[in-house]
Lab assay of single mutants.
Amino acid sequence: PDEFRDPLMDTLMTDPVRLPSGTIMDRSIILRHLLNSPTDPFNRQTLTESMLEPVPELKEQIQAWMREKQN
């Protein structure tokens, strides 16, 4: 489902985090971005790792969907 895909890389998220802007991304992708630029890739506001907020409900939904697909 589209809501499980990272908006920057269009890959399935495994550890979704919410940026201060409200955008949800995969943690590994935003951390890689932050190594090059300490900004939100969508609005260029300053962004640090400590500002990332886990989204455990979405992570659980993704994991359940993945388990379902394996069966």
Rank of each mutant, 00 (worst) to 15 (best):
2 D>C: 11
2 D>G: 13
2 D>M: 12
3 E>C: 06
4 F>N: 02
4 F>M: 10
7 P>R: 04
7 P>E: 05
7 P>Y: 02
8 L>S: 02
8 L>M: 10
9 M>S: 14
10 D>M: 09
11 T>H: 04
11 T>Y: 02
11 T>E: 03
11 T>V: 13
12 L>A: 05
13 M>L: 03
14 T>H: 09
14 T>W: 06
14 T>K: 09
15 D>P: 02
15 D>R: 03
16 P>K: 04
17 V>Y: 03
17 V>F: 12
17 V>T: 03
18 R>W: 12
19 L>W: 00
20 P>Y: 01
21 S>T: 06
21 S>I: 06
22 G>L: 02
22 G>C: 04
22 G>R: 01
22 G>F: 00
23 T>D: 10
23 T>I: 09
23 T>M: 10
24 I>G: 06
24 I>N: 01
25 M>I: 01
25 M>L: 08
27 R>N: 06
27 R>L: 02
27 R>T: 08
27 R>V: 02
27 R>E: 09
28 S>P: 12
28 S>K: 15
28 S>M: 12
29 I>S: 14
29 I>V: 15
29 I>H: 08
30 I>L: 06
30 I>R: 01
31 L>S: 13
32 R>F: 05
34 L>A: 01
35 L>T: 08
36 N>W: 12
36 N>A: 09
37 S>G: 07
38 P>F: 15
38 P>M: 04
38 P>R: 11
38 P>S: 10
39 T>E: 12
39 T>Y: 15
39 T>D: 08
39 T>S: 10
40 D>W: 00
40 D>A: 01
40 D>L: 01
41 P>H: 02
41 P>R: 01
41 P>F: 01
41 P>V: 06
42 F>Y: 10
43 N>K: 05
43 N>L: 04
43 N>Y: 03
43 N>Q: 08
44 R>N: 15
45 Q>S: 12
46 T>E: 13
46 T>D: 12
46 T>G: 13
46 T>A: 13
47 L>G: 00
48 T>P: 01
48 T>L: 09
48 T>D: 11
50 S>I: 01
50 S>M: 11
50 S>F: 08
51 M>C: 13
51 M>W: 10
51 M>T: 09
52 L>A: 01
53 E>P: 00
53 E>G: 03
53 E>L: 07
54 P>T: 03
54 P>C: 03
55 V>G: 03
56 P>K: 11
57 E>T: 08
57 E>S: 09
57 E>L: 10
58 L>R: 07
59 K>R: 04
59 K>S: 07
61 Q>T: 07
61 Q>W: 00
62 I>W: 01
63 Q>D: 13
63 Q>V: 12
64 A>M: 12
64 A>T: 10
65 W>L: 04
65 W>R: 09
66 M>T: 14
66 M>K: 13
67 R>G: 12
69 K>V: 10
69 K>M: 11
69 K>N: 15
69 K>S: 11
70 Q>P: 15
70 Q>V: 07
71 N>R: 12
71 N>E: 14
